[in-house]
């Protein structure tokens, strides 16, 4: 049977659907940024940005950008009514201290024990940069990962053990890929959902790790 991978837009929408009304969410740089555009207006979801915003709003209209109002990716944003600003110490108290309900991170690899690698490929010529990823990994109540299931070379990013440098240990709750939604459980990965037409056996073969139904 053939199957079609979910698009990034579909992945982002799938994540947005899982975010409950009233949640405080930190959205990481890169692919997860798309989730912000998929949040349903009927839910009041508070976006946190590590550089000191709670209640972050969308990108401003052209010409309305203000260099003092940016997100973690240094892109111009707006502030919603009721939103506020604070310093970095307060912001990371929110992150490290377990006050953020959900962090949505990109990743190079996620292991079946919930380890995540997303800050460095470990290559000698790479310039390392970690930012707030390690704080979110250890501090958010739930850590969602959004990533492609396979690398460009077809290697699984779902692994039994991360080979790239770790960001956090045993912290990932759920993984959203372009092939499946997987929960991290004490027994390993558990399949919540797969793209239509994909069998558990085929997903397991592609992933190279044991998957539980």
């Amino acid at each position: 049977m053939s199957y079609t991978k979910w698009t990034r837009q579909q992945m982002a929408q799938r994540i947005a659907d899982d975010i409950p009304d009233g949640a405080v969410v930190n959205i990481g740089i890169g692919m997860p940024e798309m989730v912000a555009n998929c949040l349903p207006p009927e839910k009041e979801i508070l976006l946190h940005s590590e550089n000191g915003i709670l209640g972050m709003g969308p990108r401003p209209e052209p010409g309305q950008e203000d260099g003092d109002l940016i997100n973690a990716g240094k892109q111009p944003v707006t502030l919603l009514q009721g939103g506020c600003f604070f310093d970095h110490s307060t912001s990371f108290s929110m992150m490290r201290g377990g006050h953020i309900d959900i962090a949505i991170l990109g990743a190079f690899q996620v292991a079946e024990n919930g380890d995540i690698a997303n800050w460095s490929t470990g290559k000698p010529d790479a310039i390392p940069a970690v930012g707030g990823a390690m704080d979110l990994a250890v501090g958010a109540k739930r850590v969602f990962v959004m990533m492609e299931h396979l690398t460009k070379n077809g290697q699984s990013k779902i692994v039994s053990q991360c080979s790239y440098p770790l960001t956090g240990l045993g912290c990932v709750t759920r993984v959203y890929t372009d092939l499946a939604v997987l929960d991290v459980t004490p027994q390993g990965f558990s399949v919540v959902e797969m793209v239509e037409g994909l069998s558990l056996e085929e997903l397991e073969r592609l992933s190279g790790v044991t998957l539980h139904a």
Binding site: E50, H88, S89, F92, M95, R96, P128, A129, V130, G131, G132, A133, M134, D135, G139
Partner: peptide, 15 residues
């Protein structure tokens, strides 16, 4: 020379 520090540790060390 680069000393890379996770952002929350950086601000907390300064604090």
């Amino acid at each position: 020379e680069l000393e890379l520090v996770p952002q929350g540790n950086l601000v907390e060390r300064i604090r």
